[in-house]
Design a protein around this nucleic acid. Structure first.
Lengths: 213, 213
DNA sequence: CCGCTGGTAGTCAAGTTTGACTAATTGGGG
DNA sequence: CCCCAATTAGTCAAACTTGACTACCAGCGG
């Protein structure tokens, strides 16, 4: 799964109706250009592709009398909504070591109910533990570890990531169980997109914090 | 940077001369299909592309009398060797949250000298700390954290990953400083590729440990 | 000696991502 | 009033990735 689809569906859904540039802005607001491959090309491509697949409905907007570039507004379909929730649930439960997927899931989790999110995160913890077991069993040669030489450091690194990832998830579960944040069906939702003409508080300022060291 | 190039260059270099299928096997031996996007298509593509760019030298092998598919053997050029070491050093120092890049670097680090690797890893730790500082400064609104709502969990997750990643790197530095593994110029090198007809000890067995939870 | 499985070696079309580019509008400064 | 920079909105070719597919051979059971 590409994280772009999840992000784009989430943005369009929260707007009701949005054109490419708006989606692009929301993703920047979420910081997605930092932790995912959310470039203009990918976003416009995803919109077109998902429209072709029936997940979005494209409305060609007649160019304003003043001219200007042709725009298209998108609306999410029922099929798209279904896909959105499938991807969102997956992003919270699947452990595939892709931090961008989890980040997107965290940003959008409040579209689900609190209890469901807690269940999904518990499932995630179980998945991490299962993955850890299977990796350690599979890659431990009969002659004992250490046999692998420096290659064993790769496994060591995975296992470490799994363990710390599980621990972090447990702490998140505690925070959510303790009442943090506002989830679907709990009154006034957190505003997750920018309104018309609203300014991105994180958009300007210093140049990006270094994506690469 | 795509991790495929690093892996392919590393495999070809260790063989001296290799055709696509051999490279493919090495990557499987390293477990790269588990933690990177090393699929046949990507590997053959990378070989062709890098040959076109002068990083590899392609030798068309006359089809054996028995027929069979046409093969090409590749050899690394001087330019390719340079690129290899550039990518390898980058993979060990750059903190871009892509675990596949670090995994590849760990698997190939012994092509460098022990002291250099220690230096690169120290540099990595510095990069992680710098990144952490810039992220926390940049994303902490003046009204105090908590202002961000659940979006703050994304940052929380990044910071947690950075901290545990730095800690793991420190422990790796200790192991290497303590004499673990055999690096370039330290006598009998660790054999990192499969010889002709050698069997991959990790190739068969149970179906893959679940890549996704 | 027929067909089947498994290993060897690689191709291909379709889809995705990248990074640079185009093009119009707005809002000043000189 | 003209030009410049920034903002808004999007396109495009080139590169890369994916997953399924081709083709050949060896060995083996029946």
């Amino acid at each position: 799964m590409s994280v772009i689809r999840l992000l784009v569906l989430g943005a369009v859904r929260q707007h009701g109706r949005a054109h490419g540039y708006q989606v692009r802005n929301d993703l920047e607001y979420w910081g997605a250009h930092e932790w995912s491959n959310a470039k203009p090309g990918s976003i416009y491509h995803a919109l077109k592709q998902m429209a072709k697949q029936g997940l979005l409905l494209a409305h060609e907007i007649a160019p304003s009398p003043a001219g200007g570039p042709p725009r298209t507004e998108y609306e999410i379909t029922e099929q798209g909504t279904e896909e959105y929730f499938t991807l969102l649930r997956e992003s919270l439960t699947a452990y595939d070591q892709k931090p961008d997927v989890l980040s997107a899931g965290l940003g959008l989790m409040v579209d689900l109910g609190r209890e469901e999110v807690l269940g999904l995160l518990e499932e995630r913890i179980g998945a991490i533990e299962k993955w850890r077991r299977s990796v350690t069993e599979y890659y431990t040669p009969e002659e004992g570890p250490g046999q692998l030489g420096h290659i064993g450091e790769i496994m060591n690194f995975w296992v470490h990531s799994a363990d710390t990832g599980a621990q972090w998830t447990r702490e998140l579960v505690e925070r959510i169980r303790g009442g943090a944040y506002t989830f679907a069906g709990e009154g006034e939702p957190f505003v997750g997109v920018l309104g018309e003409g609203e300014e991105n508080p994180f958009g300007a300022g210093e140049p990006h914090p270094g994506d690469r060291g």
